[in-house]
Simulated scan of single mutants.
Amino acid sequence: MTDTIKLSQARRGDRGVIVQVGVQGHHHEHEAELERRLLELGFVEGAQVELLHEGLFGRDPIAIRVDDMRVALRRHEAASLTIRLDGGAL
């Protein structure tokens, strides 16, 4: 069984594949801009991700490996990404 969660809900060490970028439904201008920026950074459907590190205060920001890159995001930004968790190595 595979679990689908928002990347913002992931914990350190969680790995998976991006299955959706952005929020379904109508986009506000801010949401559309965030989605565009995430896509430019390489957060595309099918990309493998791993949560590497969580900040000390409120677990924010988070460091994520996206394929071969490392990117830091705030959890509210990571909530725009849906991933399918898996146990496989990247």
Rank of each mutant, 00 (worst) to 15 (best):
Q20W: 07
V21E: 06
L73E: 04
A79H: 10
L39K: 13
E40C: 05
A47Y: 06
S8L: 08
G16R: 00
R59Y: 12
K6I: 05
G22T: 02
L34N: 02
F57Q: 11
E50L: 01
H53V: 12
I18C: 04
S80Q: 10
G46D: 03
L81A: 08
L7I: 03
H27K: 13
V49L: 01
L73A: 06
A32L: 15
R15Y: 00
G87A: 08
T82P: 07
R74S: 10
E77D: 04
E29W: 07
V66I: 10
K6Y: 08
D67K: 08
G25Y: 12
K6P: 03
M1Q: 07
V19Q: 00
P61L: 06
V49R: 01
T4N: 11
R11T: 13
E29G: 02
Q24S: 03
D3M: 12
R84K: 14
G46I: 07
G13A: 08
D68I: 03
G58M: 11
L34P: 03
Q24M: 05
A47P: 01
V71P: 02
A63D: 07
L38Q: 03
R74H: 13
V19D: 05
V21I: 14
E40N: 09
Q24D: 01
L34Q: 07
R37S: 09
R75M: 14
D86C: 11
L38M: 10
R74E: 14
S8Q: 09
M69I: 04
H53S: 11
I18D: 04
Q24G: 12
S8G: 12
D3H: 10
M1Y: 08
L90G: 01
R11Y: 11
A89T: 13
L90M: 15
L90W: 14
G42W: 01
I5M: 14
A78P: 00
L73Y: 10
E35I: 06
